[in-house]
């Protein structure tokens, strides 16, 4: 009850020409103060739509929140008016985006882009807001902030721009920061720097983070809890340890075994053969069934219920039914180095 954010049975649909895309299909999640929750899954599994729903930024039309509620400090954001949402966005809940090259307005000085939120939410004067913008640039590790505050996005490299995007998001000390693939568009070395920065900033500010990624390496770096998303559903959630060392869902196994070991740069998720389901015609049963090596007859016809593996781990898979054959996870699950304890 005392969760900072609690999502219950959220469904998001897009009514497009020729049908309806059921991007998110009845997910439930919660987030506590100051923690980092990772949402992992392949592209198209509904991660970004979930984060946009939390921000109240589902474009409508064609989008629609069909069912569910999103309780922020107990208040249902789904019922909020546009005006009420504008007071939450950027102030209580902020977001950083995947591509720093396009997330900033190319014709506005970055200082001004940071100041906008401060002026709107905290009623600062321009002068104070600029001072704060310089502080924020310093905070996110941009050298020479007094000068750079008056520069335009094209004068910054990709990594530096992502720092600016983070500064914008953190400007008003939000309680929740949603980071949608914050490092995907960056070089590997820059990725590590941005993740370090996020970890540091979280320590300093106590902001809760929802980290959206398809990269389990990033998850291991930052998150305390993980939700694995597939085909618009959450198929497994648990603590970081549970997901990495005691995963129960075949899709989680697939993700883990396709994780690049050490520094081998393989094509990450191609290791699971097949493609995600078509969400304009979602499967009746388990969405992973067509690709699952353990699929049984029941899987295609009925969506499995969640099985509580512990007070923190829940898994939706028929293998956990007592009538199912016992299956061991594949030996290929290598967990970020040695795991021989």
């Amino acid at each position: 009850m005392s969760h900072l954010l609690e999502i219950n049975n959220l469904s998001v649909k897009f009514h497009i020409f020729g049908g309806t895309v059921q991007a998110v299909r009845g997910i439930s999640l919660n987030l506590n103060k100051g923690e980092t929750l990772a949402i992992v899954g392949e592209s198209g599994s509904g991660k970004s739509v979930t984060s946009k729903a939390i921000m109240g930024l589902i474009p409508s039309p064609p989008g629609e929140i069909a069912t569910g509620d999103i309780l922020f400090e107990g208040n249902d954001l789904v019922k909020y008016s546009k005006k009420q949402l504008q007071k939450i966005r950027g102030k209580e809940i902020s977001m950083i985006f995947q591509d720093p090259m396009t997330a900033l307005n190319p014709t506005m000085k970055i200082g001004k882009q940071i100041m906008e939120g401060l002026i709107k939410h905290q009623g600062m004067t321009k002068h104070d807001a600029k001072k704060r913008a310089i502080e924020l640039l310093q905070l996110v590790g941009i050298p020479n902030p007094e000068k750079r505050v008056d520069e335009y996005p094209h004068q910054f490299s990709g990594g530096m721009r992502q720092r600016v995007v983070i500064a914008i998001a953190l400007a008003c000390n939000p309680k929740i920061l949603i980071a949608d693939e914050p490092t995907t568009a960056l070089d590997v070395t820059i990725q590590a720097q941005i993740l370090d920065l996020m970890r540091d900033l979280q320590k300093k500010t106590g902001t809760a983070i929802i980290l959206i990624t398809h990269d389990l390496g990033v998850v291991a770096n930052l998150a305390q809890r993980v939700a694995v998303m597939y085909g618009g559903k959450i198929v497994e959630t648990g603590t970081l340890d549970e997901i990495f060392y005691n995963p129960k869902h075949p899709y989680t196994w697939g993700l883990l075994s396709s994780m690049p070991k050490l520094h081998a740069k393989t094509d990450k998720l191609l290791a699971i053969p097949g493609t995600p389901p078509d969400l304009s015609n979602p499967p009746k049963g388990c969405p992973f069934a067509p690709r699952c090596p353990y699929a049984m007859k029941v899987c295609t016809d009925h969506m499995p219920e969640y099985t509580e593996m512990s007070s923190t781990q829940r898994t939706a898979c028929w293998l956990l039914d007592e009538r199912a054959p016992k299956v061991e996870p594949p030996a290929t699950i290598g967990v970020g180095g040695s795991n021989n304890d």
Binding site: Q86, G90, T102, M108, E116, I168
Partner: peptide
């Protein structure tokens, strides 16, 4: 464009997003 979403995510009003960005 993405930066329009960024502007909305800051909590700016629709008018401000359209006019300023």
């Amino acid at each position: 464009q993405d930066y329009i979403v960024t502007a909305q995510a800051k909590g700016l009003s629709t008018v401000a997003v359209i006019y300023k960005h």
